[in-house]
């Protein structure tokens, strides 16, 4: 079952397209990292999903309901924490909890107390007197204590120091693993989300490049280096689908985006016998950078 689904979702700001026909599915129980550079359309997507913005085309479904028709019943199952969210800063942390409790039948006072201790939040301090990290933790606490089915985190790590990030991630993960929640987290901080996520979606310029399990993604992307030992010739016979092919003399470096263990032999067969082929795994960050760069080059070519 998919907890989030979008079909041809688009959103315009004036004449500028923020989202272009986005087709996205987030399976239930996954920790889905939605990554992309600044201005890629991550926050717009989340705002459409949360019905904070209306789509100009297509459809988004959250918990099986059209996002434009999210009712309090669905909201009781959704937690949302955003860097841009305006909290009632005149309240103390305790007042915020007291205010939120009655809206959620599933509010867990024990979990609230546990997270309050874990996040080291001062209950009597006003939100406006909290640091940014503390404020995000208070927002997370108010979104975790009712054990939502879906937790949406929009750039939660922006401006947080590593210690607070770690606490934040641990808090979210601990609770979600107990209850098999779905976490949808947007970020441009790939190293952080890599620790968290089991699924990843990469978006740039309002277009979704991929959405798949991280394991699959890491498994199919390889950096391939070909060297013709002792020859000054040019390497020929490389597969067409390789990305970012760089040639320097008898050395070639490229990205294989559909790697399978057996395919190396095929590649070797098309190369001179003295060619050395090295295959290196890639990090999520490297894959993200490659995909974003390729996408932008393609866009430039298309525009030209």
């Amino acid at each position: 079952m998919n907890i989030i689904e979008t079909h041809h979702l688009s959103r315009k700001y004036g004449r500028a397209d923020a989202l272009h026909g986005l087709d996205l599915t987030v399976p239930a129980g996954s920790v889905f990292a939605f990554i992309g550079p600044n201005g890629a359309g991550k926050t717009t997507t989340i705002k459409v999903l949360m019905n904070l913005l209306r789509p100009t085309g297509g459809e988004a479904r959250v918990l099986g309901v059209d996002s434009r028709k999210l009712s309090p019943k669905e909201r009781q199952q959704i937690g949302y924490v955003s860097e841009s969210q305006k909290l009632p800063e005149w309240m103390t942390v305790e007042q915020l909890m007291r205010y939120c409790r009655p809206f959620y039948p599933t509010w867990d006072r024990d979990l609230e107390a546990k997270l309050m201790r874990q996040f080291d939040l001062p209950p009597g301090r006003k939100l406006k007197h909290l640091s940014r990290g503390m404020l995000m933790k208070a927002a997370l606490l108010s979104s975790l204590a009712y054990r939502p089915k879906l937790l949406v985190l929009d750039e939660p790590f922006s401006g947080l120091d590593p210690l607070v990030r770690d606490e934040f991630i641990r808090g979210a993960l601990e609770v979600s693993q107990q209850d098999e929640w779905t976490i949808f987290i947007s970020s441009h901080d790939i190293n952080e989300v890599e620790q968290l996520a089991d699924w990843v979606g990469i978006i740039d310029s309002g277009r979704l490049h991929l959405a798949e399990p991280i394991e699959t993604l890491l498994g199919r992307f390889r950096r391939i280096e070909v060297t013709l030992a002792g020859e000054d010739g040019v390497v020929r016979g490389l597969p067409d689908h390789w990305l970012e092919v760089e040639r320097v003399g008898n050395f070639v470096r490229a990205i294989e985006s559909a790697y399978e263990p057996g395919m190396l032999n095929e590649v070797r067969g098309s190369l001179p016998p003295n060619a050395e082929v090295a295959v290196k795994p890639m990090t999520l960050r490297e894959i993200f950078v490659v995909l974003t760069r390729v996408s932008r080059e393609q866009s430039k070519k298309a525009a030209a």
Partner: peptide, 21 residues
């Protein structure tokens, strides 16, 4: 303005509070 209606990032919008309520 404690629950602003001209603000898309208002707290209440993301909580189970209907506009009618």
């Amino acid at each position: 303005h404690d629950d602003p209606v001209a603000e898309s990032d208002a707290f209440w919008i993301t909580r189970p509070i209907s506009a009618g309520r």
